[in-house]
């Protein structure tokens, strides 16, 4: 690929160039324009250094000037999507196969994206079943560099009383991501927009009400969806009571979700609460003729009909 041209300087120079490409790509994808100032801001580097980076990108024909802003060339876009692909595939790997905390995915992937060769990324993607979306709900560029156009709107633009499906949760800054994640909101969550109060957006997610500060709400991208059927968590069943599973929270992710699906806890399954462990949790449930023990934290995130 274009690596030969890029690999002029040291490894950290190459990292900066790749980060600059990512920034140009991100701006293009979001429909905003990338400038010298936005580049310096995104990479937290002085303006002169950003200038040198831009010059290098222009010289190697990865970017073209367009008025006051800079745009990717086709070659530059390919290169940028290769890096974005490495980042998102690696985050998917972290989410599915390691115990690393969700708010640390980004940091690890930022290091890995510069290290992984395209072949290694492809091999990793093959192992993961060629995922299309990363754990934050972002589409992963295919190996040919295809990426669907951005869709979705800010939840702030949704009318009160509407229902919205979260498509994307921005993972930067980490504090905003953590705030959303701790409210139980991830890509795939269904929000009920209740209203606005003191600049906060009041939403209900999985029967819990919470208030999202402006910064957190604008880190989300949503699309309108149908209202979900009324439901309650599996943990609210009483001993011996049966109900049909209707929904698995997106907070059950990665290997945990796969395992639960593999055990047959899929929407439509009848489940009955059996008995609690000696210490109160986990609890044994009867599903399809087998007894499965689940921790309280999991039973809280599996929903059954009301």
């Amino acid at each position: 690929m274009k690596q030969g041209a890029l690999l002029g300087g040291s490894a950290s120079d190459r990292h900066l160039l790749e980060d600059a490409l990512k920034h140009l790509h991100e701006s293009e994808y979001a429909g905003t324009s990338a400038t010298l100032a936005s580049l310096a801001g995104a990479l937290s580097i002085p303006l002169e250094q950003a200038g040198l980076l831009l010059e290098e990108l222009l010289q190697t024909k990865l970017a073209n000037p367009s008025g006051t802003s800079v745009q990717l060339t086709d070659a530059g876009r390919d290169e940028a999507r290769r890096i974005v692909r490495a980042h998102r595939v690696y985050e998917t790997y972290l989410a599915r196969e390691t115990g690393i905390r969700a708010d640390e995915f980004h940091r690890h992937a930022d290091a890995a994206e510069h290290r992984l060769t395209p072949e290694a990324v492809d091999a990793l993607a093959d192992r993961l079943g060629r995922p299309r979306y990363d754990p934050h709900g972002d589409p992963i560029p295919t190996r040919d560099g295809n990426l669907p156009p951005r869709r979705g709107v800010s939840p702030l633009e949704m009318p009160d009383g509407s229902h919205a499906l979260v498509l994307h949760l921005e993972d930067e800054p980490a504090s905003v991501f953590r705030a959303a994640a701790s409210a139980g909101i991830l890509a795939g969550s269904r929000l009920h927009i209740l209203g606005r109060r003191n600049g906060c957006l009041r939403v209900s997610v999985e029967n819990r009400e919470c208030e999202l500060p402006q910064a957190v709400a604008s880190a989300l991208e949503v699309e309108p969806c149908d209202p979900p059927p009324p439901m309650r968590p599996l943990s609210s069943l009483t001993k011996g009571e049966s109900a049909s599973i209707i929904y698995l929270s997106p907070t059950l992710g990665g290997g945990e979700r796969r395992r639960i699906l593999d055990l047959g806890l899929v929407p439509g399954t009848i489940i009955r609460r059996e008995f609690d462990s000696m210490l109160g949790t986990p609890t044994a449930y009867q599903v399809r003729g087998t007894t499965i023990a689940l921790r309280r934290e999991q039973a809280d995130r599996i929903f059954v009909e009301l």
Binding site: T98, G99, I100, G255, P282, A284, T290, A293, L294, R295
Partner: peptide, 15 residues
């Protein structure tokens, strides 16, 4: 050293 998310616990209790 081994900080991280508590993973799932789903255990089959065979008859």
């Amino acid at each position: 050293l081994l900080k991280g998310e508590a993973s799932s616990f789903s255990l089959e209790l065979p008859p």
